[in-house]
Write a protein that binds this DNA or RNA. Structure first.
Lengths: 228, 228
DNA sequence: TTTATATTCAATTAATATGTTGAATATTAA
DNA sequence: TTAATATTCAACATATTAATTGAATATAAA
């Protein structure tokens, strides 16, 4: 007859505790922000602290919670610690949480409407899937534009992408082709950078579209990237 | 020039707060247990309370946290509330958390070794993928055995599955075919029921294998189920 | 209506998580 | 060695979350 030892329930409970640790780790806005940043590239504690507007001790502690949950790893390099995602599946995890929240929580829907307002007069911006972008790059019908911060571009970007931050866009406007569709991309679906770039370029009369998601998802999909 | 309103940072923070809510929701062992159960079938509060060994008030509060996070919905039916997963993607979420934890946390690896000990002498139990099982069912080379509790089987099971709990297995042993492989399945990868069934049947001389994952994953994959 | 029942709400206490400060550690450069 | 720097640890105050109890609500049956 099947045996159910007394310790089995305990083990199952411990197992559930360990899995809950992953939930706890992503269950805080600061840690989500850290993961979003680390999905773009590896960072030192100091940089993360600055980008998240946290002090170093706090940042370090959050990073260690993420590490204990198996979501990031640390490597010492000289006198600094470099943190990175353990695994591309963390990108999937963040994406899945985003998708579930977006489809089930009215609050998220509302906030997205606020963050990405649709100008009702205009036709909606064209959105490229990864497949369509690949095709466009192959037949040379699109110019690819990375509008993330320079450091993120340098650590890795889509092949052939031109890099311009929003601030640089105005001065280099004439360098962009008027006869081809410009496809802008940024950190991911909830990042506003590519939306802002698209709005500006469109206003300036360019043919412009937006990649549906960002660099991490592209890399996660196993598509080629140029690394700095 | 691109505009960054003062409220944008706030909106992004609120958005991250909402997403963190999903993490918080799955960041407690009791709530994970509740989700595992609800992945099998819809349940009333009372049943969940009993299965999780919690009192009703506590159970109800945990359920409401899951509901606020958009992971489950409630429907009143007479004087009772029926809870169910909002979405099959919740099954994906649990699976992804499991996979990440398993590959990144030594503690999880250790606990699994404890929960599913490999008898070193024996050849390891054969594990069927869903694809292989489908094929085996088609050509009639396997008998499918559901070893979950009766209520879960009745709410939905794999087509053609025979239901026997571990307790019932002994008495109905002779009804099982000796000339075909018996494939047992249960709640999912971390459920011990199918392992126990396999160990017993094997010891009794049956040709027996285990489905890699359980009923929720099968259903989630869009494969046919027989509903009670 | 009244009564019985399932569930949720409210209030309390206990437990846990967070942010902050200053000290401790580990590594490089002097 | 010593000094400088990046990071982590320890300890505290504060905030959030959990479990428990008893009361309140909503529905169905009497």
């Amino acid at each position: 007859m099947p045996v159910t030892t007394t310790s089995q329930a305990t083990t199952e409970h411990q197992l559930r505790d360990a899995l809950a640790g992953v939930g706890k780790a992503i269950g805080h806005p600061h840690r989500l922000r850290l993961l979003e940043l680390l999905a773009q590239r590896a960072y030192r504690v100091e940089q993360l602290a600055e980008l998240c507007d946290l002090n170093m001790a706090s940042t370090s502690q959050h990073l260690q919670q993420l590490r204990r949950a198996g979501l990031i790893t640390a490597r010492r390099e000289g006198r600094q610690m470099i943190y990175r995602l353990t695994d591309d599946r963390i990108v999937d995890l963040l994406g899945l949480v985003r998708d579930i929240a977006q489809s089930q929580l009215a609050e998220v829907e509302r906030l997205l409407g606020q963050l990405f307002p649709q100008d009702i007069d205009e036709a909606p911006t064209e959105v490229f899937t990864r497949e369509r972008l690949l095709q466009g790059l192959e037949n040379g019908s699109v110019t690819l534009l990375d509008v993330r911060p320079g450091a993120e571009f340098e650590a890795g970007h889509l092949p052939g992408a031109r890099h311009l931050t929003l601030a640089e866009l105005k001065q280099h406007l004439h360098e962009l082709p008027a006869d081809r569709t410009i496809v802008a991309y940024c950190r991911g679906p909830y990042c506003t950078l590519s939306h802002q770039a698209v709005a500006y370029l469109r206003q300036q009369g360019y043919r412009v579209a937006r990649l549906a998601d960002g660099f991490p998802e592209w890399k996660r999909a196993g598509l080629p990237v140029e690394e700095g």
